[in-house]
Nucleic acid binder design. Structure first.
Length: 102
DNA sequence: GCTTTGACTCTCG
DNA sequence: TCGAGAGCCAAAG
């Protein structure tokens, strides 16, 4: 059973629409803290898969893929499958694909 | 309860 | 433009 903090992270991730991406920073800001790393930590050991939580839509603030528990390569494939172009571990048209929580 | 560890981000030279 | 260092926070050991 994940912690409260982790559940919040997952909940926010679920709000990201298909074809969009978001960043660790935005999520942490949504939580009201600067726990970028803690967010990544939570997603790393998340009990859900990308089918439950679109954790693959979370990238670094500069558009880099960052990492993925199942492998960055896998992450790239999923993103491309959703219509997001990835070049050299980086999101193409990042500012256009970026989804901002409001 | 202190220390270590990360799917991170920012600042500075 | 790029790399190193510091700062950040929650979990796990």
């Amino acid at each position: 059973m994940p912690t409260k903090f982790e559940n919040k992270v997952y909940e926010i991730c679920r709000k990201i629409p298909k074809g969009k991406v978001s960043t660790y920073k935005l999520i942490s800001e949504k939580l009201g803290i600067r726990a970028y790393r803690a967010v990544g930590n939570a997603l790393n050991k998340n009990p859900y898969t990308h089918k439950k939580v679109p954790c693959h839509r979370i990238v670094n603030s500069n558009g880099l893929i960052g990492g993925f528990a199942a492998g960055v390569n896998n992450k790239k494939r999923i993103l491309e499958k959703e219509g997001i172009e990835v070049k050299n571990n980086k999101i193409v048209n990042f500012d256009k694909k970026l989804f901002k929580f409001k």
